[in-house]
Computed example of a mutant assay.
Amino acid sequence: MAGWVPLPLSTSSECSAVQLTLVGVGPGNPELLTVAAVRALEAADVIAHPIAHEGAEGMALAIASRWLRPDQRCLPLLFPMVAEAEPRIAAWRAAADALVDEVRAGKRVVLLCEGDVSLFATGSYVQLALRRRHPDVPFALIPGIPSVCAAAAAAVEGSHDIPLAFQQEGLLIRPCPDTEAEFTALLDSARRTSTVLGLLKVGQRWSWVRAALEQAGLLDQALFAQRVGWPDQWVAPARAVPDDLKPYFSLLLVRQIWPEVLP
């Protein structure tokens, strides 16, 4: 492309000079942290992590705990799970300020983010708050394995093959629609465009989601995954999941079309 100039890659010395790093820790299994994530944790003085309420440990900290040392200080950051905008905005700004306070005190700081740091992540809001409130403080991002990728990999253990995307196919990752009509329309659109769906936060919607999949003849083409990466992980075809289940950390992979040319 005319006029396009590739950005230079950061050198190891430049990366080590950054004192604040937002780290994606993956979906649950501590073995799925990247080498870069583990190295960032090893180098940190302060491990910041999100919590939903006072006294909670937080899932990101639980995932990363295997790689932490007793001498590292943990810094819980409160991110309330509320619908109102003001408390959430205040929490993002307070988190950015707290992280920068540690950096200005000479500490090397990591903020843990469950999954990937840029995909449906609290870290993304903190990233923007850092940029707007403290533009002089450099920071780095280390990506993590998203739950949809972990679910597709875990499915192989049960002899279920659901590649997320072949050549020329699309992949749509989004929260599950709130209504059956929206869900059915999404299935229709995905089929027409050869798009695989990775639907997060199925949860309380499962009873009507399962019914819609059955009506569309997709119970054997959809893969249900709950608590991917955790010891009680469950990955199964949608047909095997009862309709009265009310899962929390759950997602759905739906592949309706397969390429004509396959092994």
Rank of each mutant, 00 (worst) to 15 (best):
A181C: 10
E86K: 12
G123A: 00
T21R: 07
V254H: 02
W92R: 05
V261C: 11
W4Y: 14
A225R: 02
A212L: 08
L61T: 01
A154C: 10
P30M: 08
A181S: 14
E14F: 08
E57W: 04
P237L: 15
P76H: 02
E57Y: 01
N29T: 04
D243P: 03
A216P: 06
H53G: 03
G106P: 09
A212E: 05
V148C: 14
D161Q: 14
H53C: 02
A165F: 06
V196R: 08
F120Q: 05
M81I: 07
L200H: 13
A64D: 02
E84H: 12
C113L: 02
G144W: 06
R210M: 10
L111K: 04
E54W: 06
F166C: 12
V228C: 12
A83F: 12
P30N: 06
D136L: 04
E57C: 10
P76L: 04
S124T: 03
V235Q: 00
D136M: 03
H160T: 13
I142T: 07
R192Y: 09
I142K: 05
L41D: 01
C176I: 04
E42I: 00
V38C: 13
T184P: 01
V82W: 06
A43P: 05
D45C: 04
G24P: 05
P247K: 00
A153V: 12
E182V: 08
D188Q: 14
A52G: 10
S159G: 12
Q168N: 14
L199F: 09
E169L: 07
R174K: 13
